[in-house]
Design a protein around this nucleic acid. Structure first.
Lengths: 223, 223
DNA sequence: TCAAAAGTGTTCTATCTACACCCATGT
DNA sequence: ACATGGGTGTAGATAGAACACTTTTGA
C-alpha cells in the first residue's frame, strides 16, 4: 500500500527515519507494570525509555516490533497490537515512530541482565518522567488496554494457559485500578463465554482448592 | 519521538517512503459514502483509490493528512483521526502508509472537477475492487466510525452547525446500516447531553416545523 | 477447631426496547 | 380537509450492582 495518489510524488527533502517502539505490559505484584530500558546514548541519555529501535525495512513493521518484543522478553506468541504513529518535528530530519503495545505473562519473561542498567519493570501508576513523549504513549496504551478489557478477551495475553478466577480477577483489578465483586465478576466472565473450566483444581495453602479455567480462544475475540 | 532504543540503530538498506492516505466519509443521499480518486499513473493505473500522497517530512503527519483533506474537499476544521500504519513488503523499497479517516459535511464540500476523472463519492456498501489494499482500509475505517458513533460525539463531523433530529438520525442510520426508533433515538441523544436545542425551528414542506439542535461540543468528546 | 480463600443466589435499580397517537403546517 | 413529517409517554424486559453466608482445606 504505497502511494495511492493520482498525482506524482513530491520531492522529498530528506529520507525519514522510522522507529518502532513497544509498550510491554505485565501484571507483577498485582500491579500493571511496563518494561523500560535505560538510555545509554544521546539523545536523552540516562533516562528510562520504551524499548524500540530503528526499522530497517527488511521486514514488515509488525514483524519488526515482534522481533524487538522477543528480544526483550524471550517470550513468543504474545498479544501485540499497533497503537499509533507519530511524527517528530523538532528532529533534524523527518522521523516517525510507530508505537505498539504488548501483553505478556510475567512468568514467561526472562529479562536481559547482562547490562549495567538492565531493562526493568515500572508501575504505570507512578512513572517518573521518561525520554521523549513516552509517558504520553504509555498513557494511551493503558487507556486502550482498559477499554479493550471490557469488550474483548485480550486478558489472555497476561495469563498462563490455566489460571484461577482469582488470578483473572486480580489482573482485571490491576488494569482497571478498582476492586471488583467476586460473584459478579465470576458471573460476567462465565456468561460471556470467554473462559471455561478445565476441570482441574489447584491446591495451595490452608484453604479450599480453586478450580482452574482457560480462555476458550487465545486469538483476539470481540464480545 | 525518534529512536528510543538503548542500542545503536541498524544500518538501513534503503530509505523508506512514507505516504498518508485518507478515508473521507460523508453522508450523501442518505448513504455513507467515501471519496475516491482515479489513478492516472502506474501502479494500479485506472483503478479507484483513496486520496493520499507522499509525506515529505516538512510538516507533521497529521498536518500533511489535513492538507490533503483540504485539497480534496475545500473544507476545514473537519474531524480527522489516525487509523493505522501499514508496511508494504512487495514494493522494491520499504514503504509505509499511514491511514487516516475524516468525516465531512457533504454540503461544505467542493470537489475538484477539472480533471478527466474527477474525485467522486462511492457508497461504502457496494465498493468495487480498489487499488492496493484500499478496500480493507475502508472496511476498518467504517468499523471504527461505527464503534465511535456509539460512545462519542463524532457525528458532529458529518452535520452542519444546526440540524434537525431527523437529519441526525438519518446519519446514524446510514452509518449503522439499520433503522432506529424515533422516540428512543431522541431520548438517547438528549439524555447523553451531546446535543441541545437551539430554540430555532426550520419550516420546509407541508408539515409541522422541526426544532433545530446543535452539538454541545464540536471537539471530540467521550461519553 | 481455626484461619484463609473458594464458591454460590437473590433483590433492587437502571437502562434499553417495543410500541401508537396527536400536532403543526402547506396546499 | 387532507397529506406529510414532527413530537411525545409508558410498560415490559434485560442487564448490572449490591450484598453475606457456607465450603473445603492445611495447620
Amino acid at each position: 500500500m504505497p502511494r495511492s495518489s493520482d498525482k506524482p510524488a513530491l520531492t522529498s527533502n530528506a529520507s525519514p527515519t522510522v522507529a518502532t517502539i513497544i509498550v510491554i505490559f505485565a501484571i507483577i505484584d498485582g500491579q500493571l507494570q511496563v518494561l523500560l530500558v535505560h538510555r545509554s546514548a544521546e539523545p536523552q541519555q540516562g533516562m528510562w525509555a520504551l524499548p524500540g529501535g530503528r526499522w530497517d525495512g527488511s521486514t514488515g513493521l509488525e514483524a519488526a516490533a515482534e522481533a524487538k518484543l522477543v528480544e526483550e522478553t524471550g517470550a513468543r506468541d504474545l498479544y501485540l497490537e499497533q497503537l499509533f504513529t507519530s511524527s517528530n518535528l523538532d528532529a533534524t530530519q523527518p522521523s516517525l515512530a510507530v508505537a505498539y503495545f504488548a501483553l505478556v505473562d510475567s512468568k514467561l519473561v526472562r529479562l536481559r541482565t547482562s547490562e549495567e542498567w538492565p531493562p526493568a519493570w515500572h508501575r504505570v501508576d507512578a512513572l517518573e518522567p521518561l525520554a521523549f513523549d513516552n509517558n504520553e504513549v504509555i498513557a494511551q496504551a493503558v487507556e486502550r488496554v482498559r477499554a479493550k478489557l471490557e469488550y474483548t478477551n485480550i486478558a489472555y495475553g497476561l495469563l498462563p494457559e490455566q489460571f484461577t478466577l482469582r488470578e483473572l480477577q486480580s489482573a482485571y483489578e490491576a488494569i482497571e485500578g478498582a476492586t471488583l465483586d467476586r460473584r459478579n465478576f465470576r458471573k460476567r466472565m462465565l456468561s460471556t463465554g470467554i473462559i471455561e473450566a478445565t476441570g482441574e483444581q489447584r491446591r495451595e495453602g490452608a484453604h479450599r482448592p480453586a478450580h482452574l479455567y482457560r480462555f476458550t480462544s487465545r486469538q483476539p475475540v470481540f464480545l
